[in-house]
Design a protein around this nucleic acid. Structure first.
Lengths: 237, 237
DNA sequence: AAGTGGTCTAGACCACCCA
DNA sequence: GGGTGGTCTAGACCACTTT
């Protein structure tokens, strides 16, 4: 049995995307929805709160839930999304080239960002992402080997997240993300089509599993002209 | 009467920050908490869900709520935060200098981003933010005049958000945010201490009130070396 | 006054983890 | 099997907006 509030959420997002509910419209009241979906009010409210968090609606007390412009919200790249998932949303020819794939340990790794106490075996992987024929992103991954023991170069070329979640049955849960702009390194210039660009956007990701263990540090290095981060934010005071 | 789940949220965040609950600890179970705070389970769960969203805890079914490392989460700049609120969190000497403050209309404004139908009066404001003696951020604001009719240059030097929320009694609700890296304009070079930097981080903000009206477009232009965006993200599938 | 969303309650059943 | 969190229910009262 799927979660009821998720079904309702999916149904309403579908109706918003297909413009059955249009931008500026007021959704049926919670009372109407609970009889429409034959459920209780708290369940409807769980679905509506999700819609609100994701920028589909704005709730106004005493009035109702206003549908927002789904095009203006576009697709936020916030949340935790793997490159493969992202590339499925956009419609550009993309490819991944694994340039290094090796085993090392946390203590040998000087610029190690997986701040771990005991020396642990890790995978060190570098991948270049090519979009529309241009090498624009360099991904440098450090992954705990015991989380992904049978990882191969071939899997890394497709999707490491998919392997961890589907093959290994683990749940990737949350991440701390940091965006800065730095000077390109020699490596950046060597493996990317850097043209005349003199800066590089660095997205550092510390990724955790459901049991709160840090299992991956990723540095995504983007050519500045191809970088865009979109987010939907609510003000909370 | 303040919201009960907010009081519980505040109490638990306080206990986490003061290390009464330490990183790695398991919070008292929901059942314990509901008797401790003399409330119902759903109310406890509202508080815990907020803690989870904001990166304070990780809930694990069957086990409990694990306290996360509040230092690693640090203070995300996600959400909607004004420069004044931000500067109060960091401890650097900062100042704001209003360089232009003028009235215009949406139709006269060619590079107008407040996509509005009829010609409306707007404020056009440019402010330079100085951090530790260096001019590093240029904020260009376009604000609907009817939302902020009595705005002055003096208010703009302090906090426009404070004026709108406290003086005008309006609620700023959500925003679409976009981060890109661009070439510095002549203006950037003129008003900022750009040194030799050849790129500028542009944060575009479309800000909406509670009634879903777009009232402000802001472009925050940061010197690349001083820019850092930190976020906490949960994976939702 | 009627209708809307915001909060809170007391209880139920289920899925998951661990001893 | 006992304890944990995840979902769902039916009802209540309140704050706010509109008529």
């Amino acid at each position: 049995m799927k979660k009821k509030y998720m079904n309702i959420y999916d149904d309403i997002t579908y109706k918003i995307k297909s413009e059955e509910y249009q931008s500026g419209d007021i959704l049926p009241s919670e009372h109407d929805l609970l009889s429409q979906y034959n459920t209780s009010r708290e369940t409807i409210r769980k679905a509506l709160n999700l819609l609100s968090e994701h920028g589909y609606i704005q709730k106004i007390q005493g009035k109702g839930s206003v549908v927002l412009d789904v095009n203006k919200v576009s697709f936020p790249i916030s949340g935790l999304v793997s490159f493969k998932e992202l590339s499925e949303k956009i419609n550009s020819p993309i490819s991944t080239n694994v340039i290094t794939f090796q085993e090392t340990t946390t203590d040998k790794q000087l610029k190690n960002k997986l701040e771990l106490p005991s020396p642990e075996k890790i995978w060190e992987i570098s991948r270049v992402r090519e979009i529309e024929g241009e090498k624009t992103i360099l991904d440098k991954d450090f992954i705990l080997k015991n989380v992904a023991p049978t990882l191969t170069k071939e899997i890394a070329a497709v999707s490491i997240y998919q392997y961890i979640e589907e093959t290994r049955g683990l749940t990737i849960s949350f991440a701390k993300k940091e965006i800065t702009v730095e000077e390109p390194t020699r490596e950046d210039r060597d493996v990317l089509d850097m043209e005349d660009f003199s800066s590089i956007v660095v997205v550092k990701n510390y990724v955790y599993l459901e049991d709160t263990t840090l299992f991956q540090y990723t540095e995504s290095r983007h050519r500045p002209d191809k970088f865009k981060f979109v987010d939907f934010a609510r003000r909370n005071r």
